[in-house]
Structures are given as C-alpha cells and as structure tokens.
C-alpha cells in the first residue's frame, strides 16, 4: 500500500523514477523566431543512458529543441548543459562540445564530395586528431556494425536513403558521443528502409547510448524509449513512459494527436 507510484502526483514534473545522473539538462529555455515563440520555458532533464522520444504535431518545436541542444539554434534565455558543462557561446569550446553530441538529420547530410569511409573518418582525424590508419580501422568497424561496409568506397549519392542514414549514424558514433540527437531520422525514407535504420537505433539504445529521438515511429518508442515527451506549440505538454502515454494520454492535445497518427 505504501509503494504508491508518484506518477499522478506531479503531472508537470518528470517521472522521478530515474536515479540516473543527468546528461542533458535544459532549464527554462526560451526561443523566438520573430513573433513566434517556438520554445516556451522548456525544462527537461535526460539521464545518462536514457532514451527519450519527442513527439508532437508538425511545427510544435521538436526540431528546434533538438537543434538547440548542440547550438545549431541559439536560445534567448535559460541554460542548456551537457554532462555538467554549460553550452559555450561560440568558437573552439563550442566545436569541442559539439564533437561530444552526435546529430542525425532527417536528410542525412552526408558530405557529398567525400566517400562513405571519408565521411566517417573526417571528424576523428580533424577533431579527435586520430591517425589516418586508426580512423580507417574504426570506420571499417563502424560501417560493418551498421551493415554498409561493402559501400565504403562509394559516394553518398550512390547509396539508398536507408544506407545513407546508417552511414550518418556511423559518422556520429565515430566521435564517441556522450549523447545522440535524432531529428526524424526515418521520415525521408521509403517505407521498406525504415526498419533497417530503426534496428540500428534500437541496438544503440540497448547498449546504453543516451538518445533524444524525434520520431513518430510508435514501434521504436515502445521498444526502446524510457520516456516519451509530448510537445505542442513550443511547450512540453506531457511526459510519461511509452506505456502510459500511448494508452492513457492525459492532455486533450495528446489524445487528439494520438487519435490522428494511430488511425494512419
């Protein structure tokens, strides 16, 4: 009787069943695009090894939230810190911090003039100062792990979307990131390629990678997410376990949203 779950007690709080050390902390973050308030007082803590899926209607600020975490978007107020370090403003310290934060884009963004292997070795050689041969070795291992080792000498445009996205994941992993951000990594893919990318991501989650994933793939959220964050109009409306969120959404916005995507 006394092990009452504190879930209902604090609806706007995060679920306090994460005794993890914090990896990403967003505290009172605000941002505008002109008159549009895209991030409204965002408070979010993501623990080490935690996988958080961010959901919400188009235009609700999910990409902006993701991009703010490695400062591809600047913020106006509040703080963001990664593994205890506040995001630096500009210059070398920012570049160093970004090296610890992997980012996977919806449109892959592989370096178009470099081979697959060069895409994976560029960061390790230029930023981590690895030797060419060490970086090549590591690239081969990573490409094997994501299943595209046979394409190592090709250029991005010669690969399918699914293959390109797996290479993009390998490119991020090559930096040994502390946390990885995924912004709708499967939205630009043909349906038959979605799973090959999700499988790699589920594998990463199982190995304990800290991940923030913007995706509408319910299967992934159920399989891999520790928590689901639901955003609308620049605000975090609801946070819960996938189980809770999908079966008993609390807010009307979330119910409405789930109604729309689940009927598809």
């Amino acid at each position: 009787m006394d092990d009452v779950k504190p879930l209902a007690a604090a609806p706007s709080e995060q679920i306090p069943d994460t005794p993890r050390e914090p990896m990403v902390v967003m505290d009172g973050v605000n941002k505008h695009f002109g008159d549009l308030h895209v991030l409204r007082d965002i408070n979010l803590t993501v623990g080490k090894g935690e996988v958080v899926v961010v959901l919400g209607p188009s235009g609700s600020g999910k990409s902006t939230l993701c991009r703010a975490i490695n400062r591809l978007e600047t913020i106006e107020s509040g703080t963001i810190s990664i593994d205890g370090k506040t995001l630096p403003e500009e210059g070398k310290p920012l570049a160093q911090l970004r090296a610890d934060v992997g980012m996977v884009f919806q449109s892959f963004n592989l370096f178009a003039h470099k081979t697959i292997r060069e895409n994976v070795t560029l960061g390790p050689v230029k930023v981590r100062k690895k030797s060419k041969s060490d970086a090549d070795q590591q690239a081969n291992d990573l490409l094997k792990r994501v299943g595209v080792e046979a394409q190592a000498d090709k250029y991005p445009a010669q690969l399918s979307g699914g293959q390109q996205q797996r290479v993009a994941i390998a490119r991020s992993l090559a930096m040994g990131p502390k946390v990885m951000l995924f912004d709708e990594p499967t939205s630009a893919l043909d349906p038959e390629m979605v799973n090959e990318v999700l499988d790699v991501m589920v594998g990463l989650a199982k190995e304990g990678m800290t991940m923030i994933v913007v995706t509408h793939e319910m299967g992934f959220a159920r399989k891999a997410a520790d928590r689901v964050v639901f955003m609308a109009d620049g605000q975090i409306v609801e946070i819960g376990t996938p189980q809770e969120f999908f079966t008993h959404p609390k807010s009307d916005r979330a119910k409405d949203f789930l109604g729309k995507i689940l009927t598809h």
């Binding site: 210059g91 934060v101 963004n109 230029k126």
Partner: peptide
C-alpha cells in the same frame, strides 16, 4: 545548408568546415 550543419555537428570549427566541406563543393 545541411552540409555546414553536419560539419559543425561533428565538431569542426568554422575554418575547418569551410576548408573541408564547403569550399571544395
């Protein structure tokens, strides 16, 4: 634009992004 963003995301500095990614293309 995504090329520059990807370059910055792996920790390249402004100069490195120009030299390695933007200018060659």
């Amino acid at each position: 634009l995504g090329q520059a963003e990807a370059a910055r995301s792996i920790g390249l500095t402004f100069g490195q992004s120009l030299r390695e990614v933007i200018l060659p293309q």
